[in-house]
Measured scan of single mutants.
Amino acid sequence: GGHPVTTQMVETVQNLAPNLHPEQIRYSLENTGSVEETVERYLRGDEFSFPP
C-alpha cells in the first residue's frame, strides 16, 4: 500500500463499519486508496488484516 490516508477517510469507514478496528481500516485504505472500495470489501465480508 502507498495511498495517503486521512483521519476523515478512516472516520467515514468507521461510521459504516463500526466493528472494524481503526488500524484495520487504515491498512485497507492504504491498499485500496478508496473509502468506497474499503466499504465494499467490508460488505462483501472480506477479511480485514492488521498492518504487519
Rank of each mutant, 00 (worst) to 15 (best):
E11N: 12
V10I: 15
Y27W: 15
T12I: 14
F48G: 01
A17P: 00
G33C: 07
V5P: 06
V13H: 01
P22N: 05
N19G: 13
R44N: 09
S34F: 02
H3K: 11
Y42V: 03
A17K: 01
P51R: 06
L43S: 06
R26M: 09
E30C: 10
Q24M: 05
S34M: 03
V10N: 03
P52A: 09
N31P: 00
R41A: 13
N19A: 10
N19P: 05
G33K: 06
T38A: 02
E36W: 14
E40H: 13
T6I: 06
A17H: 04
R44K: 08
S49Y: 12
S34A: 04
A17F: 15
P22H: 08
S28M: 14
Q24G: 01
D46P: 01
L20C: 05
R26Y: 10
H21N: 08
L20P: 00
H3I: 10
P4C: 15
G1V: 12
E36M: 12
A17D: 02
G1L: 12
E40L: 15
A17T: 08
T12E: 14
T6V: 06
E37C: 09
L16Y: 11
R44T: 05
L16M: 11
T6M: 07
N19Y: 10
Q14N: 06
G2M: 14
T7S: 13
N31F: 15
V10P: 00
G45E: 02
R26A: 07
F48N: 01
G33W: 06
Y27S: 03
M9W: 07
V5I: 11
P4K: 15
E37A: 11
E36P: 07
V13D: 00
E40I: 14
N31V: 14
G33V: 03
H3Q: 10
E37I: 13
N31G: 09
G2S: 13
N31S: 14
G45D: 03
P18A: 07
G2Q: 13
V10H: 03
V5H: 04
Q24K: 04
T7Y: 12
D46M: 11
E11I: 13
G33A: 06
P18F: 07
Y27G: 02
H3W: 13
G2C: 14
V13Y: 00
G45P: 01
T32E: 03
V35P: 04
R41W: 05
G2W: 13
T38S: 06
V5L: 06
N31Y: 13
T12R: 15
F48M: 08
L16R: 10
Y27N: 05
Q14D: 00
V35G: 01
T32N: 05
D46Q: 10
E37M: 11
Q14H: 11
T6C: 08
F50E: 03
V10G: 01
H3T: 10
E40W: 12
N15V: 14
P22E: 11
S49Q: 14
Y42W: 11
V5G: 02
E40Q: 15
E23G: 07
L29N: 00
L29G: 01
V35C: 04
L29V: 02
R26S: 06
H21G: 06
G33T: 04
G45Y: 01
N19K: 11
R26H: 07
